[in-house]
Every structure is written in structure tokens, then in C-alpha cells.
Amino acid sequence: MSDFLLDPEVTFLNHGSFGACPKEVFEDYQHWQLQLERQPVRFLQRELPTLLADARRKVAEFLGSQPHELVFVPNPTFAANTIARCLPLGPGDEVLITDHEYGACRFAFQYAAEQKGFRVVQQAITLPVESNEAIVDEFWQGVNENTKLIFMSHITSSTALTLPAEAICQRAREAGILTMIDGAHAPGQIPVHLGNLGADFYTATCHKWICAPKGSGIFYVREDRQPMVDPLVVGWGWGPEKTFHRENEFVSNHEWLGTHDPAPFLAVPAAIAWQKKHFTGEARQKAWDLVRSAVDQASQIEGIRRVHPNAFFQQMGLIDVTALKLESDALKTRLYDNYRIEAPVIRWQDRMFIRVSAHAYTTEQDIATFVNAMREIVTNA
């Protein structure tokens, strides 16, 4: 916990919502803010393009892509809106998603569907899952001749399920279907190599599992798909009078969003460096073990069940508390007010889950605090 700015009085088991920033990364973030404020014109007009290019190069190396295939964006919702609005989708076309998708990104496609006349089709992925092959087969039941785009999570937010994105991208490419992967929870939690993954479009947060400052994300567009993607925000990076990133049209069109604080983007390399120094090997294995211990212990309490086999989750675990017949908001409030535990209580379809996250700051005592709290809650339910 000492490497982070988290409140030591709170058992923080919700890294999956907004992440947490290590102190040294936060200091790098503040360094860039200070440079901006000391000479805003020089920084934004003369220095920033080169600084962003250097940061983009380091992120591309970390994610296995080419620098000109990446741009920084505030979050995956921004990237999902970009694709939903720019692709030439219309009446008769379908976008296939799973029934596990994050609400904000799903809403982006549903909004665009209402405007443009295409359909968003949700295909069920039944829980518990049995194998990656079974997931692919069940998901593919939603594909037909009208399917033009597949949008799916790499690791789902609501159900903490790792999906076989590479296998689905490969099958989609063979069928001539575009793919966009929402990797909000993937980089920093599992290895991601965009060149091998095979997605046409990929987006991710950097402020979750990479532990960069809030408001940092990436949007990947494979080079041969870049002519398809119009910018969501048109500014000085677009057109013949473009001011920034003249060397690459895709980067120029998409990365200059007008005046904003670029410090979160510039601090992402520091977060990647922190990961490589402090959170590999034994440290990462410890986080996995703690999450699995939380699931194993909690699921032995009467009325609580595990959801996934261990192979299908990493640093976010899930327990099913539907049988407790409690209101989700009341349970979340009870965890925080009575036990000072920060953990999300999630309604998904007709079920209720608690999602437990672990990172470098998580301890065995944190897990014990959570398990003991759940025992008391069940006893007093």
C-alpha cells in the first residue's frame, strides 16, 4: 500500500473500476502538468507533438503494435463512439455483441443504431463457461449474413470473464467481418500483443490495470483499416491546414482533441515502467492467488457461489450472492459503511455478483477482512 496513494483505512478491492496510481507515476503526471503551466504555448504548440510521439512509441512497444496504429484517447467509450458513428452501417446491417458488454460502450452502438438504422444483436455467453471453444461456438450462433461488425470485451467488466478474443478475431476475419475489442481491463492484467491478436480495432484504458493517471486510454486501428475511421472530434489535426502530426494522417486526425490536459497520456510510459519494475513474476502471481483465495473462501459460505473456473479470471474474481436476496445498493453500502470495504456489487441479468480485484497493494489481511465481512452479512441476512 505504501507505493500507492490509497486511503489505508479502506480495504480497496475495486481496482477494476478506476484503477489506482502509484506515487512515482503520479509524480510523473504532476511533472507534466507543471511543465504545461510554466509555459503553455511552448509546451502545447512546440513540445507536445514530439512528447506524444515518444509516449505513443513506448505504449506501442508494450502492446505489440506500430506507433502509427495508436492514438491516445480519454477512454474506451470515446473509441467506441468513434467506430459506432463512422462505420457505414445502415438498415439490414447488424453489430454483434455479447450480453456481458460494458454499458457505456453498448449504449454508443445502440445510439448509433437508432440514428442509422442498423441493429445491435446481443448473443448470450452462458455462465458458467466450460472452455474457450464453447464460448466461441456459442457466440458464433449470433453471426449471420447481416453481421458487419463484432464488438466484444477482452475481459468483461460486469462478469470478470476473460474471453477468447484472438480466436474470435481470427474466425471473423475468415468470414469477412470487422472486429472491435474493448480491452479496458486487459493491458496490465494479461499480456496483450495487438499484432498477434488480429482485431481491426482495439481500445483500452491505461488508468486501470496499467496504473496510469485517470483519463488515459488508447485507440488502435490496424493500418489497412485507418481510411475507414473518421475522427469523432475534428480539430486542428485535420485537413490541409493541419497543425499537428503532419507525418501521419490517422494520428493527426484523431489525437488532437483541442485544448486539454495531456499529462495523463504523457505519464503512461512511467506507469509501464513501474509495472515492469514492480509488478511482474511473483508479484503478479500473488495478486492472482489472492483473488482466487477470496473466491474460494467466500464460495464456501452458505448462499454464496463461485461463478468461473480459475482459468477464466486473473486479477478480478467474481462471487454470486443472488441467493442472499439483498438489494445491490444496500449491500454495497453495508460493505463500505460497516466494514470500510470498497468492492462493486453488480446486477447482471437476474443475478447479483460481487467483484473482487487485487493488485500490488492487496494483502492477505484484505482478503480475510472481506471474507469475514461476508460471513457476518450472511449470518445477519
Rank of each mutant, 00 (worst) to 15 (best):
A79I: 04
P22T: 02
A55Y: 05
P88Q: 13
A20L: 07
P91G: 09
Q30H: 11
G90I: 06
V41T: 13
E47S: 10
N75L: 03
P76C: 13
F43P: 07
A80L: 08
P67H: 02
N81W: 01
L89G: 05
L63R: 00
P22E: 02
G19E: 04
G16F: 08
Q45G: 10
E47C: 09
V95S: 04
L70M: 08
H15M: 13
P67I: 14
Q35W: 03
T50D: 14
T50K: 13
T82M: 07
G90W: 02
K58N: 07
R46S: 15
Q33T: 12
T82E: 03
G16E: 03
Q66H: 11
P22H: 04
L48D: 03
P88R: 09
G92A: 04
A84H: 00
P74Y: 07
N75T: 06
E24R: 13
E94A: 12
I83S: 03
L70E: 00
F26Q: 15
N81I: 05
G90D: 00
Q30L: 12
A20I: 05
P88N: 14
L89D: 00
E69T: 03
L52R: 01
Q35S: 08
P91V: 12
H31Q: 12
E27T: 14
I83A: 06
V59T: 06
L70R: 00
G64I: 11
E94N: 05
V25Q: 02
A60W: 08
P22M: 03
D28N: 13
E27I: 08
P67K: 04
N75C: 09
Q30D: 09
F72G: 06
